[in-house]
Nucleic acid binder design. Structure first.
Lengths: 150, 150
DNA sequence: GGTATTTAAGACTATTTTAGTCCGAATATA
DNA sequence: TATATTCGGACTAAAATAGTCTTAAATACC
């Protein structure tokens, strides 16, 4: 449907949450679920994918939980989404040769290629560190707006 | 899944086919289906959507068939796709306010907004007339390549 | 060692979407 | 009237989506 699924959305929320935590902080499914408004049992699935994809480190047992596996500035939006949704292709014809009807003769193929490239540029251009910084800036500016109103 | 469905793909094929026909030519479901490799009964559904959306004119009965309802240079790729898939939104948060988790405080929202804008620019930047022209150019250049080989 | 805590893995489910097919009705031509 | 052709909708099978739930495994602490 040319639309991000809940999996992708929830993965992004979870990784941003982890990225925003202070160094060394270990987060529980429960915390993330409540804070980011993601169903707990569903989130547990998402976290597993993120762990296997190497974005997140997990530890079981008491004092266990999740942390980022790498620094937030090395994790892009694209990587986070693809960790749970699989590789993004705006059209099947981009997956590999032969998927495309009339292969190299299709005039629409280059258009999808360009659209794909632009989308990837946007999703790769934002790291989790960027997003945490953006979130802080938004919070500050909205606080200022509140004060002005009061 | 962040991927165009068959509906969208088939709609584009059908409209390009109509755009490539000589002035006044009326095309049958059957022709389009064979030429563009789209299942006939499925295509019939697609054509109905395109007709209702005002991109295509239909006439029933003997000597009936389909033509473009407007000139090919006024029909964009975006319009064609949205005629059968409904409006494109890369993320639910773009549909309307309130769909977004933590509304204006979400740092990812602006990123989706930008991605959406870029995608739309690409899909609106190509009209069916452009695509027909591109197809002709591709055909010519591939013919030249064949001749060089032979 | 035992107990409490926490993630891992996978089975299970309901709903929606996707990708079609099929048929009878309506409409136009000749 | 016979023939051609789209229209509209019912129908279907398979896959994706969006979850839930239960049991097992690992870890920490007493």
């Amino acid at each position: 449907m040319l639309q991000l699924t809940r999996d992708g959305e929830y993965a992004v929320r979870a990784v941003i949450f982890l990225a925003a935590q202070p160094e060394g902080k270990v987060s529980l499914i429960n915390e993330i679920s409540v804070e980011q408004e993601v169903p707990k049992s569903y989130l547990s699935k998402i976290m597993q994918h993120l762990t296997r994809a190497g974005l997140v480190k997990s530890r079981r047992g008491a004092k266990g939980g999740f942390t980022l596996a790498r620094t937030a500035d090395t994790i892009t939006l694209r990587e986070t989404i693809e960790a749970v949704e699989g590789p993004i292709f705006l059209n099947v014809c981009l997956i590999k040769k032969g998927e495309c009807h009339r292969d190299d003769l299709c005039p629409v193929h280059p258009v999808w290629k360009e659209a794909q490239k632009k989308l990837m540029e946007v999703l790769e251009g934002k790291t989790m560190a960027d997003l945490v910084k953006d979130a802080e800036a938004i919070k500050k500016s909205s606080k200022r707006a509140m004060l002005r109103k009061a």
